[in-house]
């Protein structure tokens, strides 16, 4: 059952526009000119309950504007949005109690106070009793591996600790719909991993619907089975991530280290040999023949090391957008 339905959604911003220079500045003072910028252009998609969807695209593609419209922060210019049966722009209290928006570059924690103060305020705002709030804080803190950090001023925490505290503050009311706008932005590899693990756990435990934007493709590939690719406000692709990678990256690179130099003549009809450097060879194999080629190599050669190199998701998305634009 669809938890989020977006139909013909558009957002056009009216932005002041002027040329540089003093005369242009004076002219602009008396006769202000505006430019209409289409941030989101007639997009439609549906997301089921409990699904994690990656929402990807370049900077300025319209990802954040879409998220803002989905959570009711920004009024759409056109189109229909329904989230958990509510119309976000009406900003119904019951709707706001079911959603959350986490922004990697912005925070709701009070900078000079420990996170626990913000958590207490949020618990009261969502009508959670003190006893229940303590239980939830303990539960989420243990999932996020947060302890004493909750009692130290936010300004003294590391970026990773702040982000985890931010997630805790955003999830204390156990929202069923999570809008995550680059939640791992600026975090180190370990902290990114912790956040991803936590989101996966939260999704499984509470059957939460998650719409995630991130420029780190590792976030997308490890959390999302489905992706929606947006470019210049329009949807370029909406479907399974594996289908996208197979479609745009039908070949795999395989790096093999043999015990002695090989010519690999017997493999030429199945793959392309791109490089042979003494006992190390690199070949390009069609995805459909990958398992056959790997088995063949293992059965017929003495192999010291074998690596199947995936095409980076960034390259695939870039390829998709380039193809679409052309």
């Amino acid at each position: 059952m669809s938890n989020i339905t977006v139909s013909s959604l558009s957002k056009i911003y009216k932005v002041p526009y002027r040329k540089p220079g003093i005369s242009a500045s004076i002219k602009h003072f008396f006769d202000r000119k505006y430019k209409l910028i289409t941030a989101v252009d007639d997009i439609s998609f549906k997301i089921d309950e409990g699904e994690i969807v990656g929402f990807i695209g370049a900077n300025g593609a319209g990802k954040t504007t879409t998220l803002k419209m989905l959570c009711g922060l920004v009024y759409p210019t056109k189109g229909i949005v329904s989230v958990s049966g509510f119309i976000p722009k009406e900003r119904n209290a019951a709707f706001l109690s079911q959603i959350t928006l986490v922004m990697g570059q912005k925070q709701q924690l009070i900078w000079d106070l420990p996170p626990i103060e913000t958590l207490k305020v949020n618990a009261a705002v969502y009508g959670i009793s003190e006893k229940e709030a303590k239980k939830r804080i303990d539960e989420l803190a243990s999932m996020l591996e947060l302890n004493d950090e909750l009692f130290q001023p936010v300004r003294k925490l590391s970026l990773g600790q702040r982000m985890k505290s931010e997630l805790l503050a955003s999830l204390i009311h156990r929202p069923s719909v999570l809008f995550l706008d680059e939640p791992t932005l600026g975090l180190d590899v370990n902290a990114q991993l912790r956040v991803r693990e936590f989101l996966s756990m939260y999704n499984k435990r509470f059957n939460a619907t998650i719409l995630l934007t991130s420029h780190y493709m590792q976030d997308i590939s490890s959390l999302c089975k489905r992706v929606v690719v947006i470019h210049k406000g329009r949807i370029f692709y909406d479907g399974a991530l594996t289908k996208l990678t197979n479609k745009l990256s039908p070949y795999r690179n395989v790096r093999i280290e043999f015990d002695k130099p090989q010519t690999l003549d017997d493999l030429k009809e199945y793959c392309e040999i791109t490089q042979i450097d003494y006992a190390i060879a690199t070949i390009v194999v069609p995805s459909s023949k990958l398992s056959f080629v790997v088995s063949y190599l293992l059965n017929n050669y003495t192999i010291k090391d074998l690596q199947v190199i995936e095409t980076p998701l960034e390259n695939i998305i870039s390829e998709l957008i380039r193809n679409g634009t052309n």
Binding site: L73, L101, M103, K106, V125
Partner: peptide, 12 residues
């Protein structure tokens, strides 16, 4: 500075 957004997403 965008700090208003989290406030607007709460039911108060």
């Amino acid at each position: 500075e965008g700090r208003l957004s989290p406030f607007l997403l709460q039911p108060i």
